[in-house]
Amino acid sequence: MMEVLRLQNLQKSFGSVRALKNACFALKEGEVVALLGDNGAGKSTLIKAISGVFPIDRGDIYVRGEKVSIRSTRDAMDLGIETIHQDTSLAPDLSIARNLFLGREPVKLKWLGVFAPLDFAKLRDAASALLKRVGISKNLDADALVSTLSGGERQSIAISRAMQFAAKVIILDEPTNNLGVEETHGVLRFIKEVRDAGHSVLLITHNIHHVFQVADRIIVMRRGEIVAEQTVADTDLLTVESIITGADMSALLKETRAK
């Protein structure tokens, strides 16, 4: 399988906090990789570096084997990397349709630049089509404000937005946070669909049960470093839990290195 994303020795510090030390890993086409680790392990920092929220201090990023420099969120989007952040996703005062196309608005009279008028017909049609494809069209109006949606609905909108631009890599930072049982299952089903459509998914979550339901591979971070990498088929819940908490680290590290 083709490698879509490779990180080599990524480093990032915030003042004296070394949030990322030498992070390396690769993501293949059509696979779901779960990124695990305790609070403050550096998971969000890692994906923010990939998605261009802030520049990395050191290290290389390769997309489809080619070395790239990601200096802004726009760069990441143009490379086909779509991210749904833990703390930010939608603008609540904007309609669903406007959110779906935020930053990539369909316009008429393109030469007017930022003053170009939005193509409302296209915006509405594309939004409705997308909502239908995602299967949440039943009672959502593309013109409804996002502030009127439930947390689960918002999450689905954010995920469908990542899907719509045929992103190569979709990164989800704790997408099932604060969601009910049904919404959570919706999101997990969604992740599988996204994978089946050929996208690669990097999933950050604290719920190990979810990992075993959708992920192909598991990567564990501790204090800014990647300490373990395992295939889901080759491991079990208890092992993964002990890696995350750091219990019995030596044995596991050995196991990881042996591969």
Partner: peptide
């Protein structure tokens, strides 16, 4: 109301980080 810029302005005021994450 009608221009791309207006969409950006509202989005920035509504949730700046979300707008930035979309390349605004």
């Amino acid at each position: 109301r009608y221009a791309k810029l207006g969409n950006w302005i509202s989005a920035i005021g509504s949730n700046r980080n979300a707008a930035v994450a979309r390349g605004v």
